[in-house]
C-alpha cells in the first residue's frame, strides 16, 4: 500500500512532497514522545502524531518513515514544511484524532 492510498481513503490533506506519495507503507506508529518513536517505530512506517514542530522531520528521516500524518488538524510550522520539503518526507494532515487514524490505517494495511 502506498501513501497515496491513505490520502485517498482517509481524505488527508497533502502539506508537502506530493511527488513522494508513491512510497509504500509497511506499517504505522503512533506517538508524541520522540524517544518512544525513535526507539520503537520502523522503516517504512507512517508516523501518526500531534507534534507539528520541525524536529519531527529529523526523527522521520532518521527512522526512514514513509511519511507523517498530523492529527487533530494540527498545523505544521513553516520550518517543519521547509525541512520536510528539503528531505522529501511527505506531511499529511487530518482533522481526525489519532485513534481513528490508526484504526483506519491498520485496516487498510491488513487488507
Amino acid at each position: 500500500m502506498t501513501l497515496m492510498t491513505l490520502v485517498e481513503q482517509l481524505n488527508l490533506t497533502v502539506r508537502c512532497c506530493q511527488e513522494n506519495l508513491g512510497r509504500s507503507v509497511t506499517g504505522g506508529y503512533i506517538g508524541d514522545l520522540l524517544s518512544d518513536v525513535i526507539a520503537n517505530s520502523s522503516r517504512g512506517n507512517v508516523w501518526i502524531t500531534r507534534q507539528s514542530h520541525s524536529n519531527i522531520v529529523a526523527v522521520a528521516e532518521l527512522k526512514e518513515h514513509a511519511g507523517i500524518i498530523l492529527v487533530l488538524a494540527r498545523e505544521p510550522e513553516k520550518e517543519t514544511l521547509e525541512k520536510a520539503e528539503k528531505v522529501g518526507i511527505p506531511i499529511l494532515s487530518t482533522p481526525l484524532h489519532g485513534f481513528e487514524v490508526a484504526g483506519r490505517v491498520y485496516e487498510l494495511i491488513r487488507n
Binding site: 514522545l33 520522540l34 524517544s35 526507539a39 502524531t49 507534534q51 514542530h53 524536529n55
Partner: peptide, 15 residues
C-alpha cells in the same frame, strides 16, 4: 511540550 524530556533517553541508550 515538544515531545522531548520523557525520561526515556538514557534507558533507550543503555538498551
Amino acid at each position: 511540550e515538544m515531545g522531548f524530556g520523557a525520561g526515556m533517553g538514557l534507558s533507550n541508550i543503555k538498551r
